[in-house]
């Protein structure tokens, strides 16, 4: 399937993946993340239950300290 990840097109070799699987596939190993799927905030507790499908738009923000 094809999705948009952080404004870039990405091909994933599966029909669907959970948010947790996507994070693993794309090596997002950081703890402090904010994730949106099609504009909707996905809280940490829902990472394994929310699925991502063909055409979905995913934003992953890695929050780093400093300011």
């Amino acid at each position: 399937m094809k999705i948009t990840l952080n404004n870039r097109p990405e091909s994933i070799g599966k029909e669907q993946v959970s948010v947790s699987e996507l994070l693993e596939l794309k090596n997002f190993t950081f703890k402090m993340l904010v994730i949106k799927v099609n504009g909707k905030l996905i809280k940490k507790g829902a990472y394994s239950s929310v699925n991502i499908y063909d055409g979905d738009d995913v934003t992953v923000l890695h929050l780093v300290s400093g300011g």
Partner: peptide
């Protein structure tokens, strides 16, 4: 300055006032 505060702000606005434009400083 702290990542957890940045996260708190983003998640609170996305949950309660999702249309508010938020300008983040990150990294």
């Amino acid at each position: 300055d702290l990542a957890e505060m940045k996260k708190m702000l983003i998640e609170t606005f996305l949950s309660e006032l999702p249309k508010m434009p938020i300008v983040l400083g990150l990294g």
